[in-house]
Design a protein around this nucleic acid. Structure first.
Lengths: 230, 230
DNA sequence: GGGAAGAATTAGACGAGTCTAATGCAAAAG
DNA sequence: CTTTTGCATTAGACTCGTCTAATTCTTCCC
């Protein structure tokens, strides 16, 4: 049996591999998990012993297929739980992260199956993130990108909102910005702030660090393509 | 924060206090939790440091009011989870114990509240055990006693079935013996076996160690009292 | 009251996961 | 090609929960 800690390390390594170039550096893992570098070193040694990561000393680690399987399983648990807490227990989507972060390590496979069935085998969680199932997590929607990368006047749809700080999510939730929301970039202020207008007509000002959590795509991508071909 | 282990010790002590005479001996705790006596000793020392138990060396421990509060909270979590898993996720009542045994330590108070609300504030779990709420666990139904204590011909109702071995519970479940079932003691064999007949007419033979898990009461106790007064 | 039997505690060790402080390696800068 | 700088690793220690082996306390019996 894998400890909850080991699962956390694998999950972090999986995420970091996606965000940057493998191999993943020890210090990056340490920072992500809020431990000191020696702690991360000793942990990746244990993961190496278990053949969950491949390691090159002084360079970093990459997940083995087994390590990746475990990471995906944990991410699946996390996202199923978030969906479940939101849909079945009435949690606000901005407050499910902490609860799922803990429970993901403690539910059985039976629980996982039953929750997935109760939710009708969902493929996307309430933050707009895909729920992996055994196989590789579906490739990032290639058209999704950070809100900040778009200029003024861009018409966009919120693809997902990264689940980090709960206060930030609550703020976005209350402002009406959730996965699926359509918006227009109104103003990109040079002082680290972006203003967007929603369909409701409301304008919302967002400091860069919050705008960064919002991934957007061109709305009705495929449909738009079809139309332009006509 | 209290560790899951400490919670397990408090829960065990609570149960043992109810079953026998306080104080609870170290060796009994050790046996219940399947650890060695020195382990139990060192743990009760820590519980004493935290003022969760009162301890007399070489005698045993009793819960302080704070320790009892924690124990009840854990038991409430356990029973709410069992009810939830059975009612909302379709688990068989005989297989919920293991899952609840783990999750009880990891759900938040928010989760507890929401589950209780979703189940409409239940007061009894699927095994027939009361679900405590802040206050002391309701006194054992005084008329409930072990099936084995009744002679042949006794008409009884199953009050609850202790949640222990999952195979035993599955067996009882399949035989149609669940909380609320009416039965008659058919035969008490001198070889450690009891036979009961259900309303369905079916006879079920039970070895003593399984019969011991079944708590019974005279059916419609209060109603019978009312009637006899007339 | 004096042992003997049985239970509880102390002593000392270990693995997991963490830390701080000291050291070692590697890559960039000159 | 050598030095510097910065990240990674090693060394050593601590806490938690556990163990085995040794010791000490209680109690009960003669």
């Amino acid at each position: 049996m894998l400890s909850a800690k080991m699962e956390d390390y694998l999950k972090a390594i999986y995420r970091l591999e996606r965000e940057g170039e493998p191999p993943v550096a020890t210090s990056t893992i340490a920072e992500t998990l809020d431990v000191t570098p020696p702690t991360a070193t000793s942990m990746v040694e244990k993961l190496e012993d278990r053949e969950l990561v491949e390691r090159e000393k002084y360079k970093g680690v990459t997940l083995t297929p087994e390590g990746e399987t475990v990471a995906l399983e944990v991410i699946r648990h996390h996202r199923l739980l978030e969906t479940f807490l939101t849909e079945e227990l009435g949690y606000d989507w901005s407050e499910v992260h902490e609860e799922a972060e803990i429970l993901e390590h403690h539910i059985s496979e039976e629980f996982e199956r039953r929750v997935a069935a109760a939710l009708d085998e969902p493929t996307v969680d309430p933050h707009g993130d895909p729920i992996p199932n055994d196989e590789l997590e579906p490739i990032d929607d290639h058209s999704a990108s950070a809100l900040a990368d778009h200029g003024e006047g861009a018409r966009l749809e919120v693809a997902r909102v990264r689940d980090r700080d709960s206060d930030e999510l609550t703020y976005l939730d209350e402002a009406g910005i959730t996965p699926g929301t359509d918006l227009v970039v109104e103003e990109v202020a040079p002082i680290g702030m972006v203003t967007v207008r929603l369909d409701s007509g409301e304008s919302v000002a967002l400091p860069d660090h919050i705008a960064d959590a919002i991934q957007v795509r061109t709305p009705d991508d495929s449909v738009a393509d079809e139309v332009s071909k006509v």
